[in-house]
């Protein structure tokens, strides 16, 4: 079975516990985190997580809804992209 991997992108003001809360949510939804990066860009905190959701019962739709709720409670923005989109746009 081909792996389904997604990038979770979190943007906003840096604050305590972002990585912990997003990681916890991904764990709860059966996703396996394969990579984490973070950086402050143009004054904005940006974190990306690459997660394998092949075995997640929630799928990308369920995960997105849960992430949206979490992001709203933290005053952050979150995006979720299939790895294929990033690969298509940034690699020849």
């Amino acid at each position: 079975m081909e792996k389904e991997r997604v990038f979770v992108v979190v943007l906003g003001k840096d604050q305590k516990g972002i990585i912990a809360q997003v990681s916890g949510l991904l764990f709860k939804h059966g996703a396996n985190i394969e990579d984490v990066q973070q950086k402050v860009m143009d004054g904005t905190f940006v974190m990306t997580m690459l997660a394998d959701i092949t075995e997640s019962a929630s799928g990308s739709a369920g995960l997105r809804r849960a992430l949206d709720e979490l992001a709203e409670s933290l005053g952050l923005k979150v995006m979720l992209h299939n790895e294929a989109v990033i690969k298509a746009m940034h690699r020849i």
Binding site: Q37, K39, M47, L50, V85, I86
Partner: peptide, 14 residues
């Protein structure tokens, strides 16, 4: 993929 690349795509949409 670098964080800049992933952020670029997210930023384009957002």
């Amino acid at each position: 993929f670098g964080v800049e690349e992933v952020f670029e795509t997210a930023g384009m949409i957002l």
